[in-house]
Computed example of a mutant assay.
Amino acid sequence: MGKVKTGLDLLTKDFKLQNKFKGNVALLCHNASIDSTYTHSAAKFKQLFGARFIKIFGPQHGFSTSSQDNMIETNHFIHPYFKIPVYSLYSETRIPTNEMLENIDHLFVDLQDIGSRMYTYIYTLTLLLEKCINKDIEVIVLDRPNPINGVAIEGNILEPEFKSFIGRHPLPVRHGMTIGEVALMHQKFWTKEKTNLKVIKMANWERTMFFEDTKLPWVAPSPNIARVESTNTFPTTVLFEGTNLSEGRGTTQPLEIVGAPEIEPHSFYENYLSKKIEKSKLKGFIIRPITFIPTFDKSINKVCGGFQIHITNKVLFKPWRVGQLLLRELYHHLENSFKWKMPPFEYNYTQLPIDIINGSKKLRHWVEKNESIEILDSFENLTNYKLQLNEIKIY
């Protein structure tokens, strides 16, 4: 099996495919929208479509993927090189306006997702699909790999009352789809009215692949996912965004570590946490006691004790379960020093961020009641989701 070719790679090499798009072209993209030679898709579109390339859209973190954290919005601007408007879909609006969509015939989507429900790019995509209903616009998704593979599915399904911009649809935490398949799932199961949608499939991608198996280059799809290793730990550490504990933002290993100034990591690990991990029978990882000092975000300039998650076997590693276990143990270890983060969070001004992240309040109650790890199995009801996934799989 050769190197994986993304939808962008295939589009740029296939003149007959390019020739199908006769009208004006726009592109939703970000920092990781590159081909196998590290060339950005916007640069390729300038070459391929010339003056017909008329607009760029950027998701959360912006077109250049430089803005941090949730609810830090980016501005619209005219790009100094491409000389066309760049519209932010994480600004005063997360839905493209009618004005933004004017004169577009073909709107390409080239976004690198990371395979977890709590990552916003798939919702920028589905909001775009909904906005283009009954418009004379073809939406073309240039497919990209799910970096944590298309086989493993883990975690609870989002409950409707906890819908937000980090969870719009009934997905498990680890959804097992490519972004093209998310588009197809949306069209088949999550909307009554359809959009004119096309997915340009990858070549040589197999569902069992992790990103390292694709032989493709990795660049950061968001500021705190600079390392491909972080995609595997993200479903673990993202839970701590709903707490006062640091998830490593402001360090060189964000979303791979967690901690707080009140933790003495070595004694806690030796006397307590290591025994809980052993009892849980969770495999494929090692927790290493560390100290770190965030340069921004939570606990800025304070020495934090905490833990780095080292994955020793990606197939055996269950990131959602490991995250819930760590959350439970640190909640009870820190007692009054542990706080649930208060709203607002991702434009939700009423519900606790941890419940929005979990897509349920049941998991917070599980943590607070110090219930057994086996109970987590009862929160996963994936039968119907797996049946739906089988209907839309394109690989």
Rank of each mutant, 00 (worst) to 15 (best):
V367W: 04
D213M: 11
T295R: 03
I56Q: 11
E154R: 05
P85F: 06
Y38A: 03
E229V: 01
L11A: 07
K281H: 07
T312C: 03
G115I: 08
N149K: 12
N271Q: 15
K283C: 08
L389A: 05
D136Y: 03
I56S: 01
D9Y: 09
N103Q: 12
T65N: 07
A183L: 11
R174A: 00
N384A: 04
N232G: 00
K201R: 13
W205P: 00
P85E: 04
V367E: 08
V151D: 14
V315W: 10
T236D: 00
P343W: 06
V141W: 11
N224G: 06
I293Q: 14
K5R: 14
L316D: 15
T243S: 15
N149R: 14
H266P: 00
L255I: 01
S378I: 07
S280D: 11
F296G: 08
F21D: 09
I122Q: 15
E264D: 07
K188M: 04
V367S: 12
V141I: 15
T236C: 15
F210H: 15
A26Y: 05
Y90I: 14
I72P: 00
N358M: 04
H332R: 06
G248V: 00
T39V: 14
T195P: 01
P289D: 13
F21M: 11
K314E: 02
F49R: 11
F57P: 05
D113G: 03
T350W: 09
G250K: 10
L184N: 03
E130A: 15
D355S: 05
F49E: 04
F285C: 02
E212A: 04
I287K: 07
I122P: 02
P59T: 10
G62D: 09
Y87N: 08
F108Y: 03
P217A: 11
P289Q: 13
K341I: 01
Y81W: 02
A42I: 08
I78C: 06
T251W: 01
S64D: 00
S280L: 11
I277D: 09
Y349W: 07
H76G: 01
H40I: 06
P223M: 09
T350A: 07
D213R: 10
N224S: 11
A226F: 03
V4A: 08
T383E: 14
L334F: 07
P353S: 11
E138G: 02
K13C: 06
L216V: 10
F268K: 05
